[in-house]
Amino acid sequence: MTAAGLRDDARHPHAGAAPSGDMGPGLRGDGGKGPSGTLFRRIPGGRFLVGLPPYLWLGLFFALPFLIVLKISLAETQIGIPPYKPLLDWAQAGVLEVRLNLGNYRTLLTDDLYVLAYLNSLKIAAVSTLLCLLIGYPMAYGIARSSDRHRNALLMLVVLPFWTSFLIRVYAWMGILKTEGLLNAFLLWTGVIHEPLQILETDLAVYIGIVYSYLPFMVLPLYATLEKMDRSLLEAAWDLGCRPFRAFLSVTLPLSVPGMVAGSMLVFIPAVGEFVIPDLLGGPDTLMIAKILWSEFFDNRDWPVASAIAVAMLVALVAPIMIFQHFQKRATE
């Protein structure tokens, strides 16, 4: 039993209770008058001074912008600066006129381009996530099973690419995948193919780019769950007559589900909204929703439609984010 476990738990009366809904992962269940706030409670106005700056900053620069996006998504497009009509208008004699326009959302639903891009983003993200899982699982498993001496170095090797420029890593693939690129040169040289393949500017290149960029996000949570797992569980399974592969299927795999979900969400969520990879590696017919948003905004200067796309993207991401949060919360309890 740990020292903490022996502690008189009278001052944590809620310690065993499920945290209330608004608590983020890993927060302690100390009572409001409990010891945890002691330090800042004792400084006059301390809590206020600590809390106010981040609160104000996020309110002004994070929450407010989304209200503006929502507002503009409901406005009508016009040619001019700004390129949309105001929602509120002081018509004559001080009568406030409110013009809500759902036309932008109707456009999204009726124009095939948007619907296709939307579905294609989900498809590309889902397939990439699956590929990441297939490649990442053996890697995470291998690292978790490696000796203590090598483990940290291997982990470092997984994390390192994340610290180097994302843009440069995507760019590196352009040189490899293009028609006269290194991969084609290699394949022609070995005689596997006789005509260069068109890989760059296809969906395949986008898959490669996403898997490559997001693989560490899959490996790390998987590693974390696999490493935590009690090895004696496997030994118990062997002892009870389970062959290693069966033991893997019936013990290791089910127990690593939380890591699989966390890793999948960490890949899926950003992949849905990915812009740089489809823009650089994909072709003109690689439809992804973030690319459409970009071109609506920068090329067509249609702010209201771009805003409506942003709102629609957010709606699509609510479900996976909820799943992710749910599993995170369970993992920290």
Partner: peptide
């Protein structure tokens, strides 16, 4: 912000 697609954050900030 941890899960927000960058295009959305960028658009929202610019509009702000």
């Amino acid at each position: 912000p941890l899960v927000m697609p960058e295009v959305i954050t960028g658009l929202a900030m610019l509009l702000l």
